[in-house]
Design a binder for these strands. Structure first.
Length: 510
RNA sequence: GAGUCGGUAGCUCAGAUGGUAGAGCAACGGCCUUUUAAGCCGUGGGUCGAGGGUUCGAUCCCCUCCCGACUCACCA
């Protein structure tokens, strides 16, 4: 970044001089407030505001708008400029004859730059070319900018809108998201959609009577997922703490405590690589409902996500890249081994480790020494099945080795009652009938500890406190996790997680 | 972590097969009271990502590094 370098400081220096000149003239460049009566979009949407030829100016409703100056077309004693506020952009017409020579020539023409935040007050009219415009009778500087903003230009050419000089450098856009938001308004829309999505889910769960809760981010024992944690240290207690990788075990303690439905939108942290699908901190919502199982949870997930799609798009259909994804219920439910057999012709069920290794080799799956049965099956699934699942699909009944917190399948030996929802080739939800048998849970933890001892750094550690909670009795419970960033990517047609995070993790600038 | 491509003015980009760089917009000085990438005349602005090497001379060639995008590997 070179914003502190010489060439900027030319423009920077000039703007500082303008700032001082404003003060000298008695115009505060950073006033305390400004009464905004109308947003740009409202004005454009309400033609009744436009002054008619047979109307007197005094009889027309006055509007007061504020925002950033984005373009200027100065013609001597009058000027058109575009003002951008949170809702859009509206053109403003300002004349020396209306606002006075000092305000027009000095404050506006000489001392206002593109990017400055200003307020105007006047009536709405239509120009000769039919553009709805605010005729400024008053003009006020609301915040003088010292740095030039990137100034994209939009122009109609042959009926198409072309954008020149767009602010497109992805690194700069992520590092200076505030500028990205100013200059690329569609970016704001993506984040508004994300918030709408979260609200829709929150409302949906509240309507069912579930309680939104908060659980610790700093945890003495991390658990609930397979991942490497971030480690930190508490000085006063002189103890190691981990940033949570999941909140599952705490929410289940709350179910033990008697709540019958709890959920949390949880920022989780995993100390792993970055990619267009992975950020070190990410958000998921976890939900636990007592007396339910994973079959019930599938019904719940498809109903909730369908309603979210409708809330955001007015339809169950969402265009994502080249795919039209339809969230209309019901979604297919395919047992994992069936799905694998459908794609590969191989039945992996009830095979021992050596048999699985042989099959994996036939399927050109690269294996590492320490891969267990569950891991191999997962590799085959991810390679051959997952990418092909575009429409939302439940994959059910996972190998027990992969799911130490899920209840054993009521019928199928060696499996657990777990499902993932795959959509657009990626997992967006993960759920199971929660394991509430404390002795079984202890055995599963011990198996994990064994894996850990053998070098699997992502295997879980034994959480005695959680086991003790289970020993006090947890009702049958269905649990769910939905990746909010992943779902937001789908709902906003974004192909990178960075496009649905305001401030994605970046390497620090040198 | 590996591979590919890239980093030139505030923004978007061009360019020189080695002789220290251009355009449009932005900025600055003018003209211009219904424009819309407003227009017209004029001016300034760059250690060409950083460091080192080769060379009379490097932004260009070589090496190292930094940053990014994309793809691949682990994880959601």
């Amino acid at each position: 970044m070179s914003n502190t370098e010489s060439s900027v400081s030319e423009q920077h220096e000039i703007r500082r001089e303008k700032l001082h000149k404003l003060r000298e003239l008695g115009y505060e460049p950073y006033p305390y407030d400004f009464e905004v009566t109308h947003k740009s979009k409202y004005i454009l949407d309400h033609p009744k505001l436009i002054k008619q030829d047979d109307q007197d100016e005094e009889d027309v409703e006055k509007v007061s708008v504020a925002g950033r100056v984005m373009t200027r077309r100065i013609m001597g004693g009058s000027t058109f400029f575009n003002l951008q506020d949170s809702e859009g952009t509206i053109q403003v017409y300002i004349r020396k004859d209306d606002v006075g020579e000092e305000v027009y020539n000095k404050v506006f023409k000489e001392l206002t730059d593109i990017g400055d935040i200003v307020g105007v007050k006047g009536h709405v009219f239509e120009t000769g070319t039919g553009e709805t415009t605010v005729w400024a009778k008053e003009f006020e500087m609301l915040s003088k900018t010292l740095r030039p903003i990137p100034v994209p230009k939009e122009v109609e050419e042959d009926g198409e809108t072309k954008v020149y000089d767009a602010f497109t450098d992805k690194e700069q856009r992520y590092r200076q998201r505030y500028l990205d938001l100013v200059v690329n308004p569609e970016v704001r829309k993506v984040f508004e959609k994300r918030t709408e999505m979260v609200q829709a889910m929150r409302n949906y769960m509240n309507d069912k009577g579930y309680l939104e809760v908060e659980t610790p981010i700093l945890q003495p024992i991390y658990g609930g997922a397979s991942a490497e944690p971030f480690v930190t240290h508490h000085n006063a207690l002189d103890m190691k703490l981990y940033l949570r990788i999941a909140n599952e075990l705490y929410l289940k303690r709350l179910i033990v405590g008697g709540y019958e439905g709890v959920y949390e939108f949880s920022k989780d942290f995993r100390n792993e690589g970055l990619s267009r699908f992975h950020n070190p901190e990410f958000t998921q919502v976890e939900l636990y409902v007592a007396y339910k199982d994973y079959n019930w949870m599938m019904d719940f997930v498809e109903a909730m996500v369908e309603s979210v799609a409708k809330a955001l798009h007015g339809s169950t259909k969402v265009q994502v890249g080249d795919n039209e994804i339809d969230f209309a219920r019901p979604w297919p439910r395919i047992p994992m081994f069936e799905a694998i057999e459908d794609e590969t012709g191989k039945d992996l069920y009830d095979k021992d480790l050596e048999e699985l290794k042989a099959i994996a080799k036939e399927l050109n799956i690269e294996l590492e020494e320490n891969f267990g049965k569950g891991k191999i099956i997962d590799e085959v699934f991810e390679e051959y099945v997952e990418p092909n699942l575009i429409q939302p699909t439940f994959i059910t009944d996972y190998p027990i080795e992969m799911s130490p917190l899920a209840k054993k399948h009521r019928e199928k030996e060696g499996l657990v009652e777990r499902f993932e929802c795959i959509c657009n080739g990626k997992e967006i939800a993960n759920a199971f009938s929660e394991l509430n048998d404390p002795e079984d849970q202890r055995e599963r933890f011990e198996e994990q500890a064994q894996l850990r001892a053998e070098g699997d750094e992502e295997a879980m550690t034994i959480d005695e406190d959680f086991l003790q909670a289970l020993e006090y009795g947890m009702p049958p419970t269905a649990g769910l996790g939905i990746g909010i960033d992943r779902l937001a990517m789908i709902m906003t047609d974004s192909d990178s997680i960075r496009d649905v995070l305001f401030f994605p993790q970046m390497k620090p600038e040198k």
